[in-house]
């Protein structure tokens, strides 16, 4: 390997941005290369001088006072005595430092792993949220498009029987299909689902199955293929999961 790539790595290293294999490679190279040591030193000095070139701002005097008090305390204990003690225990300290470094490294690894997992989880959640939002936007856009057509009708559905407090609104176009919005419907019991029927001339035609969310709401799109001919009445019944060719269960919502 020529030396040229190391000169680039030296700059990135000085900026604190080297990572991965590049970092390992450069750190292995650096101790034996006076040229790179000089390049790093020079780049770090450049960065330091640049970073210190903002307009000076004196921090609050309290910071200085607190530091000076702390410094006084280290002197009070006798710095020379402390140094002697430090020298005497240097070996012990070095061993302890070794253990601490290992411990910190292990902890850091774990921490980094955890952060990576957290980041991945957040990304996944954002992607899910975005997908859900886009789905919703598409749904509403479809409804708005439909409403632009003067032939589109808006039909109210009323709750029936046990679901008397439920309500629904159908945006319907005989040629373009429709959108059903439902509120106040209890979630379907296990093994059951809600089914929408379009009734023309007394004959019910299946127009899809749907569930409701925890708050009893639902938005259900009816494909244009389902809209064949003029529809007189819309009804929602509770049916076994998978649906049935003709309504069998109780009616929970119906238009007049």
């Amino acid at each position: 390997m020529s030396h040229e790539p190391f000169e680039t790595l030296a700059a990135v290293y000085a900026a604190g941005a080297l990572d991965g294999d590049d970092l390992a490679q450069f750190e292995a190279h650096l101790p034996g290369c006076a040229e790179c040591q000089a390049a790093v030193r020079e780049a770090q000095d450049t960065l330091a001088r640049a970073m210190l070139s903002a307009r000076p701002q004196t921090p609050l005097p309290a910071v200085r006072e607190a530091l000076v008090r702390r410094v006084e305390r280290t002197r009070g204990a006798g710095r020379r005595a402390w140094l002697t003690w430090a020298a005497a225990t240097a070996v012990v300290a070095a061993v302890a430092a070794g253990f601490t470094a290992t411990w910190v490294a292990v902890r850091y690894e774990a921490r980094l792993g955890q952060m990576a997992r957290e980041t991945a989880a957040v990304k996944e959640r954002l992607a899910r949220n975005e997908a859900a939002l886009q789905e919703q936007v598409a749904l509403y856009r479809g409804a708005v498009e439909l409403l632009r057509d003067p032939a589109t009708r808006v039909v109210d559905l009323r709750g029936q029987g046990t679901a008397a407090s439920a309500s629904g609104r159908m945006i319907w176009n005989d040629a373009g299909g429709g959108h059903l919005f439902v509120a106040g419907l209890p979630p379907a019991p296990a093994g059951k689902t809600y089914a929408l029927w379009t009734i023309s001339g007394g004959t019910p035609r299946a127009a899809g199955l749907f569930g409701v969310d925890a708050s009893g709401r639902s938005a259900h799109r009816i494909a244009p293929e389902v809209a064949r001919g003029a529809v007189g009445v819309f009804a929602v019944t509770l049916e076994p999961e998978g649906g049935t060719p003709a309504p069998t269960g109780p009616i929970v919502l119906a238009s007049k």
């Binding site: 210190l52 000076p56 910071v63 200085r64 530091l67 410094v71």
Partner: peptide, 21 residues
């Protein structure tokens, strides 16, 4: 070497530069 006046001078020189950073 443990000179606290030197520390105060060091602080006075560099703190106003380091603080904005």
């Amino acid at each position: 070497a443990g000179d606290r006046d030197a520390f105060a001078r060091f602080y006075d020189r560099y703190a106003p530069l380091v603080f904005p950073f």
